[in-house]
Design a protein around this nucleic acid. Structure first.
Length: 331
DNA sequence: GTCCAGGGTGAAA
DNA sequence: TTTCACCCTGGA
């Protein structure tokens, strides 16, 4: 039975909670690993991972099921609890959650990735030791703003900035202090650059407002880019001031159905040099070409594994195994 | 207290 | 192709 078979639903959940077959999805690395920035851990380090956040206009808590549970749910499924149902509760909400978690998309092609890249020096061990990372399929507008915020920033600060924008300009959708729907482009455009600067976004405020205006005016139709080719969609995004290839590739990978996108930042650049013989001094654009050539349709997912591995390696936290055995200084 | 890096980009040199 | 300014937050 496939995940899709197990996830067939009709109508909205009656009691506000339901489970999804996710094939062993790991919430921490997927929701809080640098793809999305508005998920907050709601459980202790030694408890099964649980995260609070907002999907669309619905405040939810997602919890990994680590023990056999009743009826149709299985170990490795995820429990979705609706913390506060919106006035107009989406009839197909379970489908929306499955869609957001990428359960029907390229992010689930983990077995193909595993078989094709089992011998890969960098992501091979990462996939073998850690198979729960998936690609999300986020709302493109929130994703775009998030990654404009990422410029010369760091993950804690990106979360701070995106959270401030949602809190100050978004509509409250739940009891929690982070329970806000992400504000529409017109709302952000109207708030203006100075407002965003006062929220602490710095020079990024100057980039977000014109992007909001373009989307609000219909000059840039983000959802339509899901149907466009990778090149066409990337050109449309980099047409925005403050959106270069890296940010565009993040938005393409995490919200616009472009699995071949391969965002190259300083960490990924270092990994490409260390593991794949990328010549030092090659610019990021060429490095991305190199990686897309190598990873093809697994670019976005492979990049997430690479990014995850580099992050853990920097924290020296890869279970003491995979980071230590093949770094250049060890060879 | 200072110093510095952090999921970049665009313009000038 | 390289260098620099752009904001500002948290940790060393």
């Amino acid at each position: 039975m496939t995940l899709a078979d197990r996830n067939i639903i009709t109508g909205a959940p009656a009691d506000g909670s339901f489970t999804l077959a996710t094939g062993g999805l790991d919430l921490e690395s997927t929701l809080d690993g640098g793809q999305a920035f508005r998920w907050w851990r709601a459980s202790g380090d030694n408890e099964p991972a649980a995260y609070q956040g907002v999907i669309g206009t619905t405040a939810v808590t997602l919890t990994e099921l680590h023990q056999p549970v009743e009826q149709q749910a299985q170990q490795g499924d995820v429990l979705i609890e609706v913390r506060e149902a919106p006035e107009a509760f989406p009839e197909n909400f379970k489908d929306l959650v499955a869609d957001y978690l990428g359960l029907t998309g390229p992010g689930t092609h983990i077995e193909e990735l595993r078989s094709e890249f089992a011998d890969d020096p960098c992501i091979g061990p990462a996939i073998a030791g850690f198979s729960g990372l998936r690609l999300l399929r986020q709302d493109p507008w929130e994703c775009l703003v998030s990654f404009i915020c990422s410029s010369t920033s760091n993950i804690p600060r990106i979360k701070l900035n995106v959270g401030s924008v949602a809190r100050e300009l978004g509509r409250p959708v739940g009891p929690g202090e982070a329970d806000f729907a992400f504000p529409k482009p017109a709302t952000i455009a109207e708030a203006g650059e100075q407002f965003l600067r006062d929220l602490g976004l710095g020079f990024r405020a100057r980039y977000i407002v014109p992007a909001a205006e373009a989307v609000a005016a219909g000059d840039l139709d983000l959802h339509a880019l899901r149907q466009a080719s990778y090149e066409e969609a990337r050109d449309a995004l980099t047409g925005l001031v403050g959106v270069g290839e890296k940010i565009a590739d993040c938005v393409l990978a995490f919200s616009l159905d472009k699995p071949e996108a391969f965002p190259v930042d300083r960490h990924i650049r270092r990994a490409l040099e260390r593991w794949y013989g990328l010549p030092e001094g090659m610019n990021n654009s060429k490095a991305a070409d190199f990686a897309r050539e190598r990873f093809g349709r697994f670019g976005a997912l492979g990049q997430q594994y690479m990014f995850h591995r580099e992050r853990l390696a920097q924290r020296a936290n890869w279970g003491g195994r995979h980071t230590r055995h093949a770094l250049p200084e060890d060879r």
